[in-house]
């Protein structure tokens, strides 16, 4: 039995004039502690899929199971990280980190200490009483990670969390994130359109195609690359081979997509 199971998820967006087919019959499984990437062009429904797993929207069809039980019947925390940190500018860093348990009404005394511990873990000390606008972009995204980990999420959903950062910060944060997630043994799903990021970070990659959004293929990242840090992985010969393979596949999907539109 897999940790996370998606069974024939389909989703349609409705409005007065259109019924848009966003996701078509998506099924896959994720093992505990694995890191999965959903790779695809914009408009392939990656973010919709994440929102469905996070239960922000209900799928039109299909079921999601976590540890063998339907996800909506369990009171489990799911961590969701967005493109930008979206820290609340009027709250201190400490209050930002603590917002999860407060919203979930699971606040216990001692959570402040837990939050401070997490901030130290993400490499930030002595900033608990500062405000978000006093921090750099990379620091803010680390705070967002601490906020996400605060509720001990059973699952971590990452919606291109590095896309708004400069390249150097992005590489550093990728490596940092992988270490953190291994430490905490988190099962994670990353949405991205960056092929390199997907290969460098994941155990498995699901390549998605658009119109309607569906899984095109499943690519397993070779062991040698998997066990390297994201920065080292980018230098491995197998990385380049895989990059080329995925690049070609995506190009082909693109041409097919364009052809079907004409």
């Amino acid at each position: 039995m897999s940790y996370l199971e998606l069974a024939s998820i389909s989703h349609y967006y409705f409005n007065e004039k259109h019924c848009t087919h966003a996701l078509d019959n998506i099924s896959f499984q994720v093992e505990k502690g694995h890191f999965i990437s959903l790779l695809g062009p914009s408009g392939c429904g990656k973010t919709t899929l994440l929102s469905i797993i996070a239960q922000l929207i209900n799928p039109t069809e299909g079921t999601i199971k976590l540890k063998g039980l339907p996800i909506d019947q369990q009171n489990i925390a799911i961590g969701y990280m967005l493109q930008q940190d979206y820290l609340f500018p009027w709250k201190t860093i400490l209050d930002n980190v603590c917002i999860g348990p407060k919203i979930r009404r699971e606040w216990v005394t001692g959570d402040y200490d837990k939050a401070k511990g997490l901030l130290t873990k993400v490499g930030l000390t002595d900033i608990a009483n500062k405000y978000p606008d006093q921090l750099s972009g990379g620091m803010r995204q680390r705070v967002a990670l601490a906020r996400t980990l605060m509720t001990d999420p059973a699952l971590l959903l990452l919606d291109e969390p590095f896309s708004a950062l400069d390249f150097q910060t992005k590489l550093i944060l990728e490596a940092f994130m992988i270490d953190m997630l291994k430490d905490y043994q988190k099962t994670s799903l990353l949405v991205t359109h960056d092929i390199g990021e997907a290969i460098a970070m994941s155990d498995d990659i699901f390549l998605m195609k658009a119109n309607p959004g569906a899984i095109h293929s499943h690519i397993s990242v070779p062991e040698q690359v998997r066990n390297l840090s994201p920065i080292e992985a980018r230098k491995h010969p197998e990385y380049h081979q895989l990059f080329d393979q995925i690049w070609k596949e995506m190009n082909q999907l693109d041409t097919e997509n364009d052809a079907s539109r004409v």
Binding site: L56, I78, G79, L82, Q84, Y86, I103, R104
Partner: peptide, 12 residues
């Protein structure tokens, strides 16, 4: 910004 709401909703 609707994303602030998204953050809060992800915590339920």
């Amino acid at each position: 910004d609707a994303n602030y709401i998204k953050v809060l909703q992800s915590f339920g």
